[in-house]
Amino acid sequence: MKFKNTHKDHEVTDESIYRQRRQLVKTGIIGMGTLAINPSLALTLGQPQKNTSFNIEDTTSEKDATTYNNFYEFGLGKDEPAENAHTLATNSWTIEVSGHAKKTGIFDLEKIVKQMSLEERIYRMRCVEAWSMVIPWLGFKLADLIKYFEPTSQAKYIYFETLYDPTQMPGQKSRSIPWPYREGLRMDEAMNELTLVTVGMYGKILPNQNGAPLRLIVPWKYGFKGIKSIKKIAFVDKQPLNSWQAIAPQEYGFFANVNPNVDHPRWSQKTERRITGSFSFFRSRIDTQLFNGYGAYVADLYHGMNLTKYY
């Protein structure tokens, strides 16, 4: 797997850090128990920060990334998922696959993961609320998972659903949003090499509050596209209605591509507060990049499309 190198020299992680990360992945793998993974395919992606007047782009601390979460299934406060998500039972997790595919039915997650090649990738994560993090994920390409299910030519979109179980997800007892959480991607977006299904972060298995046991990561889109604790997948021929679009269609669309030129109706998307270890009160904002800086990989997907209309 080759990625186009668009990063300047100083932006690329230096080797010692890279080696540490490799070590992290290896130790992580031991910790992951039954998840058999191939570390040799791990790669790092993305350290670019063009605006050097702000702090050097560094990884968000594990503590911040695992205690500051939007996961309404466990409460609306950012600190609530970390406090409440222990009730989620992630062992012997199954996924229900349906729709236009040759292989459908109930699948054992562990068996699927064994057949996927896991890699570590460091991605920027831009929340629609105008804050962002930089997180090392462990996962596999969604494209590989899709190929596994052998979708037919009628499959134009892929649809995802989070687990619905108010006993495990106490936030679902309140009607803050319609449950279960739903998301979707156009098939070409889903097949893009950047789109990941992640099962870990920071070299460890995914914590419950971050969407265990498996979640989607689509780094050029706003964070809410990254549906957590996926329970159902369907191959469909029509564009699915994702949760935030259903809640407020004038504010959130299906595509949700990170775009500094298209503001949220109630706040600007031009800049973002980057949450990193080297946080400073006086250099807290950086410029938001089109497609979150991943344009080289994904801009072609939207060739000729009006991104203001299809936000």
């Binding site: 600007s268 507060r273 009160f281 006086f282 250099r283 807290s284 904002r285």
Partner: peptide, 20 residues
């Protein structure tokens, strides 16, 4: 000061465009 970092054009835009 801390959030928009004394970005005055942004400040004016926010006041005009964002009802809250």
């Amino acid at each position: 000061w801390l959030d928009i970092q004394l970005n005055w054009p942004q400040f004016l835009e926010d006041i005009i465009k964002r009802p809250y």
